[in-house]
């Protein structure tokens, strides 16, 4: 017979559960605290401590709208498209501070269609003003010589004439991207200055072929908000575009296919690269706008990875027909 003292002790089920519960709770608390702290401490408290925030700029209840206007005149087409969506007043309220993200990537003339057309920009500023916007900012970060890019594309003059304000990027205007959802772009410098005090964001993109990503449209347009040596990101361009499109929720996007650059993009250079497609797309769904744009560029959607990825990530729908798009002609 064994002495009672020699019986091996055994944990009761209750004791066992309590201990596992304690340990599990401690582990959970530990990792939760770790993640929370890690997020807080991601940036160094140097001169770049403040991060960029991209709030949701979309207007509730207006998602999934798309209008395509057939017209050779950009200004008229834009006005008409917005009318079809219920007027610019639906999107821009009196007192709003609007940022227009244009494509000013190159110091090239409006003629060759590599950049946002000044007429389109001027009309958009005018409409925002008319709707009572307090401020209309225009910005892009062309890496090479921003002043020349805005001057030669005719946008600088258009902004001045229409009553907007141009925000040229300076080195101090960039802050690291710290938004949840940023992976490849985590900590990447982002053109922050124009976002400081705005509540509406509209993207104005020309419709272009693009050597690296297949096509440069409304989603690729957000690339121009990045600073740093962003050509490194070209290695993984579809994922980068997706990440941007996932984080940026614009009020509206405008895709200008009046003269579409069919080949040799994104720089083009010759009128022979352009096609008079006479289409202007205005949408609250960037994926749908790009999908329609791709068909104008005669691109196979399957080759445009960023559209497939964005649709899979539920940024929008590539099946633009499902949005009951409005097709008009002026």
């Amino acid at each position: 017979m064994k002495n009672e003292n020699q019986i091996r002790p055994c944990l009761s089920r209750r004791e066992c559960l309590v201990r596992m519960g304690k340990a599990g709770g401690a582990l959970f608390f530990l990792w939760a605290a770790g993640f929370w702290l890690r997020k807080r401490g991601a940036a160094l408290p140097s001169d770049t401590a403040e991060g960029v925030s991209w709030p949701d700029f979309s207007v509730p209840g207006l998602s999934g709208k798309l209008v395509a206007v057939t017209s050779g005149e950009r200004a008229k087409a834009l006005e008409r498209a917005l009318q079809a969506l219920g007027g610019i007043e639906k999107f821009i309220r009196p007192g709003d501070r609007v940022l227009l993200k244009v494509n000013a990537a190159f110091a090239s003339p409006p003629l060759i269609g590599a950049t946002t057309h000044p007429e389109l920009l001027a009309e958009m500023i005018r409409l925002c003003r008319k709707a009572g916007a307090d401020q209309v900012l225009v910005a892009d970060n062309p890496i090479n010589d921003p002043a020349a890019c805005f001057a030669l594309t005719g946008m600088e003059a258009a902004v001045k004439a229409a009553g907007g304000r141009l925000v040229l990027p300076r080195a101090s205007d960039f802050k690291p991207l710290l938004l949840p959802g940023a992976e490849r772009l985590a900590g990447w410098p982002v053109f922050y200055e124009p976002f400081k005090n705005i509540n509406k964001l509209i993207g104005l993109a020309p419709l272009k072929d693009h050597h690296r990503s297949g096509a440069s449209m409304t989603m690729k347009n957000w690339y121009g908000l990045l600073g740093g040596r962003r050509n490194i990101l070209h290695q993984d361009i579809h994922q980068t575009i997706l990440e941007l499109a996932r984080m940026i929720k614009p009020t509206l996007v405008v895709l200008d296919g009046t003269t579409a650059m069919m080949q040799n993009g994104p720089t083009g250079g010759s009128l022979a690269d352009l096609k008079q497609a006479d289409t202007l797309i205005v949408s609250t769904d960037q994926v749908a706008a790009d999908a329609l744009g791709a068909s104008i560029l005669e691109k196979d959607m399957q080759t445009l990875g960023f559209i497939r990825l964005a649709e899979a990530a539920a940024v929008g729908t590539a099946d633009y027909r499902s949005l009951n798009p409005i097709f008009l002609s002026v």
């Binding site: 190159f106 693009h210 050597h211 690296r212 050509n231 361009i237 993009g265 994104p266």
Partner: peptide, 17 residues
């Protein structure tokens, strides 16, 4: 303006490749 392999993308961006 002069651009080298490191900076070409600054001028012609997506076509540098």
């Amino acid at each position: 303006e002069i651009f080298t392999t490191d900076t070409l993308a600054d001028k012609i961006n997506g076509k540098a490749d």
